[in-house]
Design a protein around this nucleic acid. Sequence first.
RNA 1: GCCAAUGUGGCUCAGGGGUAGAGCAAUUCACUCGUAAUGAAUAGGUCGUGGGUUCGAUUCCCACCAUUGGCUCCA
Length: 608
Amino acid sequence: MEKEEVLKVYRHSLAHILAKAVIEIYGKETQYAIGPEIDDGCYYDFVLPRTVTEDDFKTIEDKMHEIIKRREDWTRKVISRSEALELFKDQKFKTELILDLPEDETISIYYTGDDYVDLCRGPHVDNSQELFSSAFKIKSVSGAYWRGDEKRDQLQRIYLFAFPSKDELKAHLAWLKEAQERDHKKIGTQLDMFMFRETAPGMAYWLPRGWILYQELMKYSREIQLKHGYQEISAPLINNKKLWLISGHWAHYVNNMFIVPGVSKDTSAEDAVTSDNTCCCYSIEAEDTMAAKPMNCPNAMMEYKRTMHSYKELPIRYSEYDVLHRKEKSGQMNGLFRVQEFRQDDDHTFVTPDQIKDEIKDVIAIADEIYKTFGVTYRAEFSTRPDDYMGDIESWNSAEASLKDILDEKYGEGNYEVNEGDGAFYGPKIDLQIKDALGREWQCGTVQLDFQLPHNFELTYADKDGVQKMPIVIHRAIFGSFERFIGIITEHFKGAFPFWLNPYQVAVVPIRPEHNAYAEKVQEALIKAGVRVEADYTDVNMRDKIKKFKQMKDPYILVVGDKEAAENTVSVNFRGSNKQQAGVPLEKFIEVCRDLNANRTLELPQEF
RNA sequence: GCCAAUGUGGCUCAGGGGUAGAGCAAUUCACUCGUAAUGAAUAGGUCGUGGGUUCGAUUCCCACCAUUGGCUCCA
């Protein structure tokens, strides 16, 4: 058996052991649902008479060990649908699973000992003693919805780390610890990049250092977009409710919007709020109700609509970096990965149907270029027509065919995920996912076709034949949100950003105050060359200064004293090591810095 | 929104029914230094917020807020 297969069998078998242990501890009325294997182990979903907390972990683990030691045989049986329904008549989730199986499906069950049976395809170990060498540990408990539907039962999910050997478990836990050290929330605090306060949940305060990095990203994004024919626009951050009614956001997205209630004339309105004893009453029903924009699209439509357009002008690419606000349900925020206030590298491109393919190809090319600059890898996902789609089916079919062609050509057939029916109601989309330090995937890039907004805003262009036709809108973002992207690259680089991106690129440390004059000369020369430099001219131990800049992960620290001043050189300290190189001519050092910035080089030279 | 956990000086964390501790950072003094933690002293906290129990709550209970790991949703 392949190693992968062995791992699967172990994990899946341990899921059964977990269920058996939980049933023995919590009693026969336990409802057990499903227990698949996952990346680092497995989980099992239950309905239990009481909640499982961390205090129960040890009890469950001990019970599992005890069960394994019983050396019970695992027996597979094939039974009929009616036998299965009878066997699991007290198990509502199993019953539902059985009823959902196709008529001709073989129904197999697995016994672990005589007293525990589970509906399962297998395969499994033949006897529990095969699990003697396995290693497992309860990772966590969480709520999970039956079949991922929040309207259905909430189950208690118990996650297990599970590996074939103790060493592998140990290695995994070590990896996890290392990954937690990469946590962008931790590094962001250490490097003085950003902070959060309770008075603005899910909205980052960008500190001086972090804001430098943020702006460097925007600068980079703007450079690329300029090359690809994008025009930058900016539009109001809050808009009257009327706009959101037209765009459809008021109907579909209002719960995610920060509303600014207007002044209501009708003081009896149900949602009217009296602010004080004056006559002023606020209501979201009032005509002057405004809302902070959660998306840029409607305003882009407005700018397009300002004049008549000809097919000759298309594609028109409007990019924007305005601040967006999306109200999230509690428990959904997560550091910079999921915030309530953010900026996207957003764009709305207006195209004719036959321009879709070339345009999207270009978008993917931009994504490749950008992600490559950071050395991150991504995975593409293609989402197709949902049941509640808008527009005519021919447009959908041809649009989906174009997207599929592009994806096949770019990544090869089967090298991207297809989510049938998962597209937006207004059009199919391609999402680009990037992983964080813990291996969780986050959507960054997105390319979406939209047949709906142009319709709602009655957009037109005059085609060759003189007939007014409706353009198609392509929504796209590559970084996604800068907030999320910064979170990801912070973890990716563990805070040691590429030279061009690091808040300060070079730090200057004069050995004693009498070397300040030369240090200032070095700093000025670097600034003149467009290098971001910080220096410490205070009268403290040079070691303290070096320590401080090392902790800030500045790529190069230049120590200057008598020798350097006399020779017009610098003594270079390299990030991430104790390595030093003395006697580097200042001009040479500056030249290298200039190149690193110009090329946005990923690697940091370790020698001059 | 749901399940579980967490919230103690700027940061990292210990403690625990009798009104709080450490390290780092900060400030002051000494050392004037050639590459990642010199020494001494000082200052800094109504222990997330609001209720309750108690003679007494930072500690126990309840609610709320925020944060974390998941579920759902999403950039």
